[in-house]
């Protein structure tokens, strides 16, 4: 990896010229053509690797079954939408899709709410129990699902939630909220407390300050939280396979496994289904991606 495809080839040329940009290295002019090519070349290769598998699955999903199972290297062969027609029409795909949307949407909404309130309290109030709670959030990341799944199953059964979508929403929240609260706490830390003080002078209580002043400013971090909790719920397999017993209540992540029997995987349908599953995640990503960098920044810097 060329981490240092050089910027200032001529130190003399890098003397500040009038108004400087805020960018650390405004060296567009000083980058030699060779280095430009190297930089863009590396990035293009990396981008191709990043999107390659997605594109390959997309192209494969348009091929008929016999073409997928051939070892010839062809990008497009007898393009057809038959795989999609089968997946959408002949399986419970749409029902599972609906289930997944419900689970993911609720996980996202409830997750944002709880992570935001918790993150705000952790950031602003020095209450007893604050530090232990921070540690607990980190430690929860270490628990393997294998240890939790049986006792959680028992609890859900006692609450009468087995085989319902709320059980999945609650389980997903336990995965998503600790990390999101941690991240949001970092972001709230970067919002000056003088704003809170001003709001409180204007007569806002702590809850009003949070809702009207701080939350709107934390939009980037909220976007990342939304993205993260949506994806967590959208791709969760372990709890879904343990808690849901009826075919019509499966989520996509689990239902899709029906296409992969041990000995005769139906790759053509699997590829089409994979594309269809990725689309909603892609839409959420599209709305969140602008905020990803700034939203995650503060969360990462403040441990």
């Amino acid at each position: 990896m060329t981490q240092i495809a050089g910027t200032g080839t001529l130190p003399a040329a890098a003397v500040p010229r009038g108004a400087r940009h805020s960018r650390p290295r405004d060296s567009r002019s000083s980058r030699s053509p060779a280095k430009s090519i190297l930089l863009h070349g590396t990035l293009i290769v990396a981008s191709l690797i990043a999107i390659g598998p997605i594109v390959w699955v997309l192209l494969s999903s348009l091929k008929p079954g016999y073409a997928i199972q051939s070892s010839d290297l062809t990008l497009v062969k007898d393009p057809t939408l038959a795989n999609y027609r089968y997946v959408l029409g002949e399986t419970s795909f749409l029902r599972w899709f609906g289930n997944s949307v419900v689970v993911a949407a609720f996980t996202m909404a409830v997750g944002i709410f709880f992570s935001a309130t918790t993150g705000y309290a952790l950031s602003r109030f020095n209450f007893p129990g604050r530090r232990p709670l921070m540690m607990v959030f980190l430690v929860t990341q270490m628990f393997p699902v294998a240890i939790l799944i049986v006792p959680i199953y028992t609890i859900m059964a006692n609450l009468g939630l087995i085989n319902t979508l709320p059980s999945l929403i609650i389980a997903n929240l336990t995965i998503a909220v600790p990390f999101c609260a941690w991240m949001l706490k970092g972001y709230f830390d970067s919002i000056p407390t003088s704003l809170d003080e001003a709001a409180s002078i204007d007569g806002c209580g702590p809850f009003a300050t949070f809702w009207r002043v701080v939350l709107p400013l934390a939009r980037p971090a909220i976007a990342v939280t939304a993205f993260y909790s949506f994806l967590t719920a959208w791709g969760e397999v372990a709890y879904a396979s343990a808690f849901i017993q009826e075919d019509r209540k499966f989520t996509l992540a689990y239902g899709l496994q029906q296409f992969v029997p041990q000995f005769n995987p139906q790759w053509e349908y699997l590829t089409a289904a994979a594309v269809l599953v990725t689309v909603p995640a892609g839409i959420v990503f599209f709305f969140a991606q602008r905020h990803l960098v700034s939203g995650l920044t503060a969360g990462g810097t403040k441990g």
Binding site: F114, S115, T117, T118, Y120, A121, L122, R124, F125, F127, G129, R130, L133, V136, T140, F143, I147, L148, V150, P151, I152, T154, I155, I170, A171, L173, T174, V177, P178, A181, G205, P206, F207, F210
Partner: peptide, 25 residues
């Protein structure tokens, strides 16, 4: 009290669904 009010739902859910299962495990 308001700080606790803000964290209590998360604490309860984590206690029920992470810490009880952990101890039980």
């Amino acid at each position: 009290w308001y700080a606790w009010a803000m964290v209590i739902p998360v604490v309860v859910v984590l206690a029920v669904l992470i810490f009880y299962p952990l101890v039980r495990g």
